[in-house]
């Protein structure tokens, strides 16, 4: 196991949150396709359910999660990741039924359901005997 020692870094005296403010991060995303829909999972730690904007326009899906500054300005011991908003845009080539898009946010993971338009769903054709 890696052992990380926390030591005070004296060199930097500027407030750390000033460095990250305004930074925007790309969330890691999984996309999965079933017969009925595209399912998108995005890691957006620190984003409350009310702080997500999802837009779907002209085949482009954009995700924006707002994150407030959390790191204090003094006494920083270890800074391994920056804190900022999450933003990412996807081009969706499948035909999506935009009115039926739903999303939920739980424990920092955003799940977006993008139902395929009816016309594209595989259809089983029943053959009747004459």
């Amino acid at each position: 196991m890696a052992n990380t020692a926390l030591e005070k870094k004296e060199a930097r005296t500027e407030p750390a949150h000033e460095v990250t403010r305004g930074n925007v991060y790309t969330p890691r995303v999984d996309i999965y396709e079933t017969t009925d829909e595209l399912l998108l999972f995005a890691d957006m730690p620190g984003v409350a359910p009310g702080d997500v904007d999802i837009r779907f326009e002209n085949g482009e899906l954009s995700l924006h999660g707002r994150v407030g500054a959390r790191l204090p300005s003094q006494g920083v011991l270890l800074k391994e990741y920056g804190i900022g908003d999450f933003y990412r845009v996807f081009t969706i080539t499948e035909t999506i039924d935009a009115n039926k898009i739903t999303a939920e946010m739980k424990n920092g993971v955003l799940t977006v359901h993008l139902p395929k338009a009816e016309a594209l769903k595989p259809r089983k054709i029943t053959v009747t005997g004459g």
Partner: peptide, 13 residues
């Protein structure tokens, strides 16, 4: 959390 049936388009997490 893997859905039952389908295909992955992207796996980054």
């Amino acid at each position: 959390n893997v859905p039952a049936d389908g295909v992955w388009h992207r796996q980054e997490r």
